[in-house]
């Protein structure tokens, strides 16, 4: 599932498409339903009624999810190398946060962005590793805190987690978030060496 917000669907900007994929070499389809001609009939179904069969299937799915969460969890980082304060935001909020981080940098604050590209699986390892040097994270969302618990669970109490969010309606501006960042930054005395 690709999670988008309404703002994204209304934006336009130039994009560069990747090179086209060669579709003449598709993998074989041993499952396809095209008539049982010279082979046994096939069934495609999602319903599993047998209790034993269902548990086996659910274990299979659990192993699959485990592999997926190990292999595809992904996050973008922006100006985090020397950061003392990191904003965690996704989607449109991440774009707003980038603008606010630029402003905060102009003010001399060492602020970076961590943008989860995948929200599930959540890139918890990236955040946890970042907590070695960053002791204050600001979760910024365009809602009242849907990702907040994910960040807290990833950090397991290693760093402080602050939150700023507004529900749908008015979209926060970079200036607004820059103010939130700077007030937290000074409150936590991050300007001191």
């Amino acid at each position: 599932m690709i999670l988008v917000d309404g703002m994204m669907s209304q934006m336009m900007e130039p994009v560069i498409f990747p090179d086209p994929v060669n579709l003449t070499e598709l993998p074989p389809k041993p499952w396809v339903l095209d008539g049982a001609n010279g082979r046994p009939s096939r069934i495609i179904k999602s319903l599993i009624l047998g209790t034993v069969e269902m548990e086996e299937h659910n274990w299979k799915l659990a192993r699959k999810y485990e592999t997926i969460s190990r292999e595809i969890a992904n996050a973008e980082t922006y100006m985090t190398e020397d950061a003392r304060f990191v904003v965690v935001a996704y989607g449109t909020a991440a774009r707003v946060a980038k603008g606010s981080i630029k402003r905060a940098r102009e003010m001399g604050l060492k602020v970076g962005l961590l943008r989860p590209v995948t929200l599930w699986p959540f890139p918890e390892r990236v955040i946890r590793e970042m907590s070695r040097s960053v002791k204050d994270f600001l979760v910024f969302e365009m809602n009242t805190g849907q990702m907040l618990d994910d960040v807290k669970l990833s950090l397991e109490g290693r760093s402080n987690v602050h939150f700023y969010g507004r529900p749908g309606g008015i979209v926060s501006t970079p200036d607004e978030i820059a103010k939130v960042i700077s007030s937290l930054y000074y409150r936590q005395h991050l300007e001191e060496d």
Binding site: L33, D34, G35, A36, S41, I43, I44, K45, S46, L47
Partner: peptide
């Protein structure tokens, strides 16, 4: 050359009864 689409309901198990390609 026949493909049957069984429903949700009692007859969903038609996929176990017809010996043709079945896609729920």
């Amino acid at each position: 050359k026949t493909i049957c689409v069984p429903p949700a309901g009692c007859a969903v198990l038609a996929y176990d009864y017809f010996d043709i390609d079945m896609g729920e």
